Computed example of a mutant assay.
Amino acid sequence: MDGVMQVQSRISEIQSRFVYRTPAASGGWASAAAAAGLDGTGATSAYASSGATASEGAVVAEAQKFLGVPYLWGGTDPTKGLDCSGFTQLVFGNLGIDLPRTSSQQATTGKPVASLAEARPGDLVFFDHSSSRAGIDHVGIYVGDGKMVAAPQPGEAVKVQDVGTPAVIRRVLPQQTPTPMPAASGSALGGVPYANLFTQAANRHGVDASLLAAVASQESSFDSQAVSPAGAQGLMQFMPATAKGLGVNPLDPTSAINGAAKYLSSLTKQFGSTELALAAYNAGPGTVSRYGGIPPYAETQNYVRAVMTKAEAYR
C-alpha cells in the first residue's frame, strides 16, 4: 500500500467515527462529539486531566480527533464548527500551548522553519490565499509526508489534504530533548552469537551493542543466511534496496551488523529516540514521519517492545 492509500485509509477509519452528520442523522456533529468525549471546548477527558506535554505525535493525534467537523467562519466550538485558526488554536490549547486567535497572529509565534523539507509533524503551515488583501489568511497543521490537517473553507470540513506551497512555516512545539540510544556497550554479551561484531559496530557508530544483538535476534534468530518471504536478507534482514543504499552485503555478518549500526544511529538522530528508530527500522522512516510516532501497526508495536525487552536482557 503506497503512502497516499495509507493516508486515505486512515482518514476513512477516523471519519467513520467522527464524521459530521446533519441534524436529521443521529443528532449531528454534536452527538458525535459527545460520543467521542468532546465537550464544548474540544477537550477530552484524557488530555483535560493528564497534563501531558505536547509532542509531535500528540499534536497529530489531537488534530485527527476533529476530522469531519464542519467549517464555520469564526468558529471555535467543535460542536458547532471551526475555522482554520480556531481549529489550530483548539488543538494546541488542548495540549497546553496557547496560540493567538487569528492565522496572521499565529504566523508570528514560535520559531521559523526554513522549508517544507525541514518541517516536522506538528508545525504550523500558513498561506496567503486572498488576492484582495495581503498577508496570512489560512493555517493548517503539518502531519508529515506533504500532508496537513486543516479547516479549509465554507461547505467543507476539517480534513487531511496536500500542503502545497506554504508562505510561512512556524514551529511552536517546545524543543524536546531527544532520548538517545544508550551508550555503546563494551561487554562481550555473554554467549550471544557475533558478540564481538556487535560490540565493534556499536563502538564505531555510537549505538548499544545489546540493541544490535536484540535486533538480530528478533529479525533472524542470528541466522546470517536467513531470507524472509518478503525478500529481506541476512542477519539484520535488510531489503535489497536498503542494503544497496547503505553499501551493505546483507549476507555477510560483518557488513550487515556494521550497516545496521550505521542505519540505527542515523534513524535515532532523525527521530530522537531508540523506540522511534526501531519503528523506522521495521516499518520505514516515511511511515514513522507520516504518523508522527510509532505507527498503529500491531507488527511494528510488538517489534519495538520485543527488541527493547531483549536488549535489556542482554545488558
Results as ranks from 00 to 15, higher is better:
residue 229 P to V: 09
residue 58 A to D: 14
residue 9 S to R: 11
residue 112 P to C: 09
residue 163 V to Y: 02
residue 91 V to G: 06
residue 86 G to V: 08
residue 257 I to W: 09
residue 139 V to N: 10
residue 125 V to T: 11
residue 178 P to T: 04
residue 311 A to W: 05
residue 113 V to P: 08
residue 102 T to W: 04
residue 88 T to V: 11
residue 23 P to M: 02
residue 203 N to S: 09
residue 110 G to Y: 07
residue 74 G to A: 03
residue 187 S to D: 08
residue 273 S to V: 08
residue 238 F to Y: 02
residue 38 L to G: 09
residue 240 P to G: 03
residue 245 G to T: 00
residue 102 T to K: 14
residue 234 G to T: 07
residue 38 L to Q: 00
residue 220 S to Y: 05
residue 239 M to Y: 05
residue 209 A to Y: 05
residue 115 S to T: 13
residue 267 L to E: 00
residue 235 L to P: 05
residue 295 P to E: 15
residue 142 Y to F: 15
residue 175 Q to R: 15
residue 199 T to L: 00
residue 111 K to P: 02
residue 43 A to S: 13
residue 37 G to R: 07
residue 190 G to C: 03
residue 145 D to F: 01
residue 274 T to Q: 15
residue 33 A to G: 12
residue 227 V to P: 11
residue 32 A to K: 14
residue 49 S to Y: 10
residue 82 L to P: 07
residue 178 P to F: 01
residue 242 T to W: 00
residue 165 T to I: 00
residue 206 G to T: 01
residue 223 D to V: 09
residue 128 D to Y: 01
residue 26 S to A: 14
residue 279 A to L: 02
residue 116 L to F: 03
residue 284 G to F: 10
residue 7 V to C: 06
residue 200 Q to L: 12
residue 106 Q to F: 03
residue 111 K to F: 04
residue 35 A to L: 11
residue 237 Q to M: 06
residue 155 G to H: 02
residue 170 R to C: 12
residue 265 S to C: 02
residue 185 S to P: 06
residue 282 N to M: 07
residue 3 G to R: 09
residue 226 A to C: 09
residue 263 Y to E: 09
residue 121 P to K: 11
residue 110 G to L: 12
residue 120 R to Y: 10
residue 264 L to A: 04
residue 63 A to S: 15
residue 313 A to K: 11
residue 295 P to S: 11
residue 89 Q to F: 02
residue 97 I to E: 06
residue 11 I to E: 13
residue 240 P to I: 06
residue 54 A to I: 12
residue 64 Q to E: 15
residue 180 P to G: 08
residue 238 F to R: 02
residue 132 S to M: 01
